[in-house]
Computed example of a mutant assay.
Amino acid sequence: MSRRMTVLVIASVLVIAFAAAAIWFKSAQSPEQTTASPPTASSLVRFHSPVIGAANAPVTIVEFFDPSCEACRAFFPLVKKLLADNPNDVRLVLRYVLFHEGSETAARILETARKQGLYAEVLEAVMASQPQWHDDPQVTMAWAAAEQAGLDVSKAKAEMMSAEITSTLEKDAADAKAVGIRQTPTFFVNGRSLPSFGSQQLINLVESEVEQAK
């Protein structure tokens, strides 16, 4: 083979290789392959969202949670500790994702408690009693626990189906879908998702954000 022919063959191979690489790169950047854009602040925190902790805290934990979720119950003491350890620097914003049977009623109990100024107290009681009412469509023991925490049950049952509470649950469901929530709990800290799911990952991200805020 002549030198000129060899050069032409090599050039042809290079052209084909670059073309193949370009096709692969384009396919790798298709919508199905790219990472979803991070959620906007407005899709994480809404004016109607319940907040626990200092309203002006520089670090915000957003938790998409289901009151019936056993993993949410397992994380609850850790989240409380993060708030207690950083009373001026960390606040918690809760968003409802209702995956389980009875979850909607439990969420409505919490929202009626918020109207009565007892959100944190009733949340504590409902989560503590969760094993007793988990998967009960009537969440009977959740009602009992909420009453022991001070909830006016008669008033709550009269208000639980209000348009305002229904709107809150519907907006949370829409935001959870927009953000792509597939499991509970799912956490964001100042808009950042955890690098992977786990208690230590949540602790590390909160501590990092608190340190940066100082």
Rank of each mutant, 00 (worst) to 15 (best):
T6Y: 10
F65K: 07
M127W: 06
V90H: 01
R192F: 10
Q116W: 05
S208R: 14
L205Q: 02
R91Q: 10
V189Q: 07
D136K: 09
F25H: 10
L205C: 06
Q138I: 09
R192N: 13
S12V: 13
T105C: 02
L194E: 07
L44E: 03
Q200E: 15
P185N: 09
N204A: 15
M161F: 11
A22M: 08
I23E: 01
C69H: 05
V45F: 09
A158T: 09
A55Q: 12
V7E: 11
M5D: 13
T184I: 11
F18A: 15
E121T: 07
F76S: 01
V93P: 00
A156I: 08
K81N: 06
F75P: 04
A22E: 04
T40Q: 08
H100L: 04
D85G: 09
T34Y: 01
Y119F: 15
A213D: 01
V139I: 10
W133H: 12
L151Y: 00
A125P: 10
T168H: 12
R46K: 13
G53R: 04
R182C: 02
L205I: 11
E104S: 08
K81V: 00
A54D: 11
S12F: 14
A145T: 00
A128P: 02
E104F: 02
A41E: 08
H100V: 03
T168Q: 13
K157R: 15
M1A: 13
S42R: 12
V59H: 01
L78F: 06
D136F: 03
D175E: 08
S129N: 05
T35V: 15
S208L: 15
K115Y: 07
K157P: 07
A156T: 06
T6V: 15
M127E: 13
G150W: 00
S208H: 12
S27Y: 12
A125I: 10
A57H: 04
S49T: 10
S2M: 05
P31D: 01
R95C: 02
K214G: 11
L44H: 05
A28N: 15
M160P: 02
F187C: 10
F25M: 09
P137G: 03
A146Y: 00
R192E: 15
A128F: 08
L82T: 07
I10V: 15
A174M: 08
S199I: 06
S167T: 12
A54C: 04
W133G: 06
S199Q: 15
G102K: 02
Q138T: 14
E159L: 12
T35L: 14
S2R: 09
T60K: 04
R73Q: 13
Q212G: 15
W133P: 05
Q201T: 09
D89R: 15
N204L: 10
M160Q: 12
A145P: 04
A178E: 14
A107W: 05
K81L: 08
